[in-house]
């Protein structure tokens, strides 16, 4: 094996390089943090109900069937743009009613079709969750997903 690379040289490259890339990664992450807060997401509309809705989303572990901005379980549809898919941009009230009706009707019990459980959300929780999904649909994701199908 190569003689020109000694063990101590390899060690120094490892430590030096790791510190370099860790610092770079940290700086870029901090910049992305700033970018998210000021450019790509709408901090002014991140209301308390959006924050509560995020906890409804988490408490019911929605991510372990659905995906949200492409991350999650691939068992059920993408929900990052569900607001758009339900026509929320044209008729906010219609989309809200449609989403509520859908969640209340679960499980469908249709044989051979994937079942969504009944989570028994209150009216308030449903509204918060929908606020969260509406807010999520307005994150600047550089055009992803390619179409309304998610």
């Amino acid at each position: 094996m190569a003689e020109y690379l000694t063990k101590s040289a390899a060690r120094n490259i490892f430590y030096g390089g790791t510190i370099f890339f860790l610092v770079l990664f940290t700086i870029l992450t901090l910049h992305s943090h700033y970018y998210i807060q000021n450019v790509s997401t709408d901090a002014s509309t991140l209301t308390e109900s959006v924050a509560r809705g995020k906890h409804v989303w988490e408490r019911n572990s929605c991510i372990n069937c659905h995906t949200l901005l492409g991350e999650g379980a691939y068992f059920a549809p993408e929900l990052g743009n569900v607001w758009v898919r339900y026509g929320g941009r044209e008729s906010a009230e219609g989309a809200r009613m449609g989403l509520k009706a859908w969640m209340r009707a679960q499980p469908t019990g249709v044989p051979g079709r994937r079942q969504m459980p009944q989570f028994n959300l209150t009216e308030q929780e449903l509204d918060d969750l929908i606020d969260f999904l509406e807010w999520t649909s307005r994150i600047d994701t550089l055009g992803w997903p390619p179409n309304d199908a998610g």
């Binding site: 870029l28 910049h31 970018y35 998210i36 790509s40 901005l69 492409g70 994150i139 550089l142 992803w144």
Partner: peptide, 9 residues
């Protein structure tokens, strides 16, 4: 790439 982070990623 698609979660609201800058395009340089």
């Amino acid at each position: 790439y698609w979660i609201g982070t800058p395009q340089y990623w």
